[in-house]
Amino acid sequence: MSGNMNITLKVWRQKNKSDAGRFETYQAKHISPDMSFLEMMDVMNEQLIKDGKDPVAFDHDCREGICGMCSMYINGRAHGPNKGVTTCQLHMRSFKSGDTIVVEPWRASAFPVLKDLIVDRAAFDRIQQAGGFVGINTGSAPDANSIPIQKHLAEEAFNAAACIGCGACVAACKNSSAMLFMSAKVSQYALLPQGQPERKLRVLNMMKAHEEAGFGACTNTEACEAECPKGISVTNIARLNRDFVAASFTGE
């Protein structure tokens, strides 16, 4: 089943890390409004292959908004025009036939482009490796119900833990700061009793890794929250800042 939408795409093409890159224009024809944005890209790529050209490389995996792999900057917005969705959840019914759509990779010096729309987000993993955990070994845990946790705190911790690590917050930020991403993890643990013993050390180590990775500082523009597909709140950044100040003072 194909549809009757015709779309002009201006897509960022870049062969590899060292290539300068440029926009190329393509036509996507017979697009159905029920297709997802990535399915539209699939249709375009199949045509490119048949025409003997190199298809556009883009990251994706789950295609249901949870793995955090997809990452397109569409018409100047991270994950496109709709609020609260990832690129893979965007459907063509959000566009009109005849539209021109500009598609770019995330742009941040800490996220170098690997090819076309694919960027390297390893810096996110490095931040988590620096302190995004509770330091316990397998097998040493007490009974799960031995520490009651107030429902609203558990829910708030969940809200922070729902971050999918996509990087849209960095792409949306004029400083390329990863504070929203980092604060989500810091908050999850700061809200839970299990996170208390390493609370100060964690925030110091993660802040250090953030800086080393080349992410910028936060100047409270809140563009990150506006583009975050999972509704991660900037109040997490405030919590992180408080913890950071406290930890820096006590010098732990």
């Binding site: 955990f133 509770v134 316990i136 397998t138 097998g139 040493s140 845990a141 007490p142 009974d143 799960a144 119900n145 520490i147 009651p148 946790i149 107030q150 429902k151 558990a154 829910e155 911790a157 969940f158 833990a161 999850q188 643990y189 839970l192 299990q194 996170g195």
Partner: peptide, 22 residues
């Protein structure tokens, strides 16, 4: 049973009741 203990200790935010238990 050990899995749930392990995950809670890691800070996995499972759903809870008003009394604070899982």
């Amino acid at each position: 049973v050990n899995i749930i203990d392990q995950c809670v200790a890691q800070g996995v935010p499972f759903a809870r009741e008003y009394g604070g238990l899982l």
